[in-house]
């Protein structure tokens, strides 16, 4: 057993070559790859940690924001509540006003209606009363009352004052003298009336007699737009004009 020096030196060279080759093909790439991986992992860990920190920061930030929002929200809610309260009051006031307006309008219209109704009632009742009076008078009118009316007429003519008489004489067209009665007259009555009118007018002319139920009750002398007489219709017209005047006065007052 001995050392072969050529083999010995060749093996040293072989070993050095192998060392170089393995360094080049095995350790170098392998260690690099492992180092790379470690770096990658550590960089990822670092990244993860930084991200975690970032996330934590963000989380606290968001928490803060959330708290602020919560605070603001409650403030807003309070504000909204107040606003709603005031709005409610306003609305209620408005509604009240509206109701008031409607009520006043309604009241006015009711008032108007009432007034109109009353007016109509008054008018109608007046008409009715008039009708009743008229009816009553014509129902009651018999011979004696007619006689009485004629007498009253004759008396009136007789009691006529001078200036009144003169005025009448000037206005009357004696040719067209007309006596209207609400009832049919008898011959005797006509003579009396004629006599009274002749005395009054100092003329011999005869009057024309007509029967006019429109008068209601009474007697009237007409001529040339002028007339004199005594009848119920006249009184009633007078009463009506008086009532109308009173009503119009009342209306202007209200």
């Amino acid at each position: 057993m001995q050392i072969d020096w050529f083999t010995f030196s060749a093996q040293i060279i072989n070993f050095l070559i192998l060392l170089w080759l393995l360094r080049k093909f095995l350790y170098g790439p392998l260690l690099n790859v492992m180092k790379d991986r470690e770096e990658k992992i550590s960089s990822r860990l670092e990244e993860a940690r930084s991200k975690l920190e970032e996330a934590e920061d963000k989380s606290t930030e968001y928490q803060k924001k959330l708290n602020e929002l919560e605070k603001q929200k409650s403030a807003w809610r309070e504000e909204a509540k107040e606003e709603a309260e005031s709005f409610k009051l306003e609305l209620m006031q408005e509604a009240r006003n509206e109701v008031e307006q409607v009520r006043s309008k309604w009241t006015k219209s009711v008032e108007r209606e009432k007034k109109m109704f009353l007016e109509e009632l008054e008018e109608q009742s007046f008409e009715k009363i008039m009708g009743i009076v008229e009816h009553m008078v014509s129902d009651l009118a018999d011979r004696s009352l007619e006689k009485q009316a004629i007498n009253r007429f004759i008396n009136r003519i007789k009691e006529m004052k001078d200036d009144e008489r003169k005025q009448m004489i000037d206005a009357v067209d004696t040719n067209h003298l007309e006596v209207a009665t609400a009832f049919p007259t008898e011959e005797k009555d006509r003579e009396e009336i004629d006599a009274a009118i002749r005395r009054l007018l100092d003329s011999e002319k005869e009057c024309r007699y007509i029967h006019d139920p429109e008068l209601g009750f009474g007697i009237e002398v007409r001529s040339n737009g002028w007339k004199i007489g005594w009848n119920m219709k006249g009184y009633l017209e007078e009463l009506r004009s008086e009532v109308n005047t009173t009503f119009s006065q009342l209306e202007t007052e209200t």
């Binding site: 072989n14 070559i17 192998l18 080759l21 393995l22 093909f25 095995l26 790439p29 392998l30 790859v33 492992m34 790379d36 991986r37 990658k40």
Partner: peptide, 18 residues
């Protein structure tokens, strides 16, 4: 040596750090 270097080259050719 050939065997070792061959194996090394074969394996390290497709190394990955993934």
């Amino acid at each position: 040596m050939l065997f070792m270097v061959g194996i090394s080259i074969m394996i390290t050719r497709k190394l990955t750090s993934k």
